[in-house]
Design a protein around this nucleic acid. Structure first.
Length: 388
RNA sequence: CGGGGCGUAGCGCAGUCUGGUAGCGCAUCUGCUUUGGGAGCAGGGGGUCGGAAGUUCGAAUCUUCUCGCCCCGACCA
């Protein structure tokens, strides 16, 4: 990708309080559209998509099937589960042209139960494990901290259906472990904590927190109370939804009993904010992404746009690594390119200086080291890091 | 929803108290000089001061209403 073809509005100044919101706005990842509503610009969307993919993969590894539920749900479904009134003003209600009432889903237990119950299943179909990654809306009293506590957010929500509580509970434990694997992959050290089931209901639940400055909860970490940020929450729901919504199967004695359900949430857009806080360095005012989810693993900085050889080499490297390289081909000072580079956060930076190039060398920066290597060895060097 | 604050150029802000038809930095455009970590000089463009009503000869500035946004609290999967 060339900078000249990529919409990346980096800002010098931004009026924001929380670190993640400030960096995300500054670095051109997001823009505010209204209170609690953020547009994801190309760079931010790339990052979120990478995280989404990692989460999606792990959910599939755990045995979930990915599907997708609309953002709008018929209000009647939520009346069936008796959450329509319980959810209150946080739930956004909309009416279509026929004056039918819908809600913009703050979660998706109801339509998911409906999805399974329409399928007319028997015990041989069990277990059924589904998940979707979809936008949710909660009309928060006070949105804040950018995408940490916004109104429209991107959430991964899984739903499991088993015959017995024991089976459901065992799966719950598997997901519990799976969550730790996901957080580890993302480089986040999440702490699980038994929690209230609250509004959602059910038999038990666990929250997953990371220590954070923009946290909203307090949990005990290493003996002291730190405010923390909740990134995920899993629930063993029992028949909280399946009973009122009549999702049941018939046993050999011709008796009907409701399925045992679990639900598993992960705040994808919130995780992006958490990761900014993790991978942003205050002293250098820069981001360094791990290779696995860097929006661009390689940043090519051409120091002299008048140097033909520099341009040719930059183009060559950029073409070679089309999908993972970001070539700053703008006709601006090197200093500005470095500043942009600090915000882009590519772990591998290739700087092409005209004087070094004359000696057949280019500069590569990786993991805090800066070294000049011969042109012929660039690909070997990069492939080695990328494990190609 | 209670308390506080803000809305002036793309971004960040001053000007408001004490009314006299708008200013700074960055960005942008033009030209020249520069070019190894946000270059320098010169010149230019861009704002019905969130909106409405009122007071006044005259309102960014005063009054009332309204909309939007932020912070603290309460609330929160």
């Amino acid at each position: 990708m060339k900078a000249s073809n990529f919409f990346l509005p980096i800002r010098r100044e931004v009026n924001e309080v929380s670190i993640s919101a400030k960096i995300m706005l500054k670095s051109g990842m997001i823009q505010k559209l209204a209170s609690g509503l953020y547009s994801w610009l190309p760079m931010g969307y790339k990052i979120m998509s990478k995280i989404e993919n990692i989460i999606s993969e792990e959910f599939e590894n755990m045995g979930f099937n990915r599907m997708c539920i609309p953002t709008l749900h018929p209000a009647d479904l939520w009346k069936e589960s008796e959450r329509y009134d319980a959810y209150g003003k946080e739930m956004l209600r909309v009416f279509d042209r026929k004056n039918n009432e819908f809600i913009y889903g703050p979660s998706a237990e109801e339509p998911c139960v409906d999805m399974v119950r329409q399928a007319n299943i028997n015990k041989n179909n069990l277990p059924i494990n589904l998940f979707n990654i979809q936008w949710k809306f909660r009309d928060e009293l006070r949105p804040r901290f950018g995408v940490v506590r916004c109104r429209e957010f991107y959430m991964c929500d899984g739903y499991s259906f088993h015959e017995t509580v024991d089976q459901s509970s065992k799966f719950y434990d598997d997901v519990f472990k799976g969550y730790h694997r996901i957080f580890k992959k993302l480089g986040l050290e999440a702490i699980a904590k038994e929690a209230e089931t609250g509004e959602v209901g059910g038999l038990k639940s666990h929250e997953f927190h990371i220590p954070s400055d923009v946290g909203e909860d307090e949990i005990e970490i290493n003996g002291s109370n730190k405010s923390s940020l909740e990134l995920g929450h899993i629930f063993l729901l029992g028949d909280r939804y399946t009973a009122p919504m009549k999702l049941s199967i018939t046993n050999s004695e011709n008796k009907q009993f409701p399925l045992i359900m679990g639900c598993y949430g992960l705040g994808v857009s919130r995780i992006v904010a958490a990761m900014i806080e993790k991978y942003y360095n205050h002293e250098s005012d820069s981001i360094v992404w791990p290779i696995d989810f860097a929006p661009f693993a390689i940043n090519i900085i051409n120091a002299d746009m008048k140097c033909e050889n520099c341009i040719n080499l930059s183009n060559e490297i950029c073409n070679k690594y089309k999908n993972i390289a970001f070539y700053d081909d703008r006709i601006i000072s090197v200093g500005q390119k470095f500043t942009a580079s600090d915000m882009i956060g590519s772990p591998i930076k290739i700087v092409i200086w005209p004087k070094e190039l004359k000696n057949g060398l280019v500069e590569i920066r990786f993991q805090g080291k800066k070294e000049n290597i011969e042109i012929e060895k660039i690909y070997e060097y990069v492939n080695n890091i990328m494990q190609f």
